[in-house]
Write a protein that binds this DNA or RNA. Structure first.
Lengths: 185, 185
DNA sequence: CGTCGAATGTAGCACATGCTACGTTTCGCT
DNA sequence: AGCGAAACGTAGCATGTGCTACATTCGACG
């Protein structure tokens, strides 16, 4: 049972997806990029859909690890701004891209994206909750804080295509102040 | 120069895309659904990419018209909540889905989605600005309000897959309060 | 040394894709 | 009536897709 070859391939495919996108992923190009064949990807992952599920899950694991590695901020306000800074640098930036792609594809009811997005969303919310608690959010308010901050930063990430980063930073700080106020209410 | 046939097809294709998604759109199925052939779609729109650009633009026009038709709320707080209610009902709900798909696909650098998302994002921001002004937002704050509200509601829409609508409504109201506070600062 | 299974290579199938070549119908306008 | 252009049908090409059948190499273990 040497399935550490599968593990190795998964790492490389995940790297490639983080760099080149999840939407429209097809076996032959990605196989060539990671130094194997479509034949082997099917052999180790049984189907294309199972491959993307595995990649999305692995991406989520990496993202949660990055959040867990973030130092605790003194206030919720600082915590939100620091979180946004993390969103804008690797490895979280690309992970957010992939998560957005999975979420949107799930949004229109396509499997396995829908199920994956739901499952990973739960885990991700847990990671955010732990982080906000570390930043001093009271447990009575942390649920509302998570929905507000998670959703909003999600949207800010998407608006990186259109908007000026400086404007977005201002928007994030406005959000951070609202979160701070909510934490203290 | 009777190109009103193209117009008719565009309306029908847009309806179909709003119902079935933009990602992975392929000519033959959509052609069959709207009662024509792939041959004719290419004939009227010259290429698949030009078709999706036209569909995204048309969707955006419809969405902006829906926002323009919204009654003015008494406060920014009420305006944001009313806007979210509009996001959750047709025609805006499906339009947001399509816009999310275009934005995410543009996020990973794929054309023509990137250019389209940028162009439509500008127009959309203008529509939101007009709406918020109607709801009493001071012109000195309306730019910040637009980035905050647009991005955040964007993210809330995506989180509809995962989260409980009631929780999200709470989150939106938290956002609305923050927007109100920002408008009055 | 021989054996068994994991890992891989080669070929290919059935189907879907965007797009084109070529011919035909339809219809408004003079 | 007749002419030109818009609109459409049929057939097909080249390429890409997920996946499979079959044969082969390689290395650990008895």
């Amino acid at each position: 049972m040497t399935e550490h070859r599968r593990e190795e391939l998964l790492e490389r495919v995940t790297d490639h997806v983080l760099a080149h996108g999840l939407i429209g992923l097809s076996l032959r190009p990605v196989a060539a990029a990671v130094g194997t064949s479509d034949r082997m990807l099917i052999y180790h992952f049984t189907s294309r859909d199972a491959l993307v599920s595995a990649v999305v899950a692995r991406t989520n694991e990496r993202a949660m690890a990055a959040v867990a590695a973030l130092p605790s901020a003194a206030t919720v306000h600082d915590g939100v701004n620091q979180l946004w800074a993390a969103y804008r640098t690797e490895p979280l930036h690309s992970a957010m891209d992939v998560y957005c792609q999975a979420a949107v594809t799930g949004l229109i009811g396509r499997e396995p994206y829908l199920t994956d997005a739901r499952a990973n969303g739960e885990l991700w919310a847990g990671a955010l909750r732990a982080y906000l608690v570390r930043c001093g959010a009271p447990t009575s308010r942390v649920a509302r804080l998570v929905t507000l901050v998670d959703s909003a930063l999600f949207g800010f990430h998407l608006d990186l295509i259109t908007d000026d980063p400086a404007e977005l930073a201002q928007g994030v700080d406005d959000l951070a102040r609202a979160a701070e106020a909510l934490a203290r209410s």
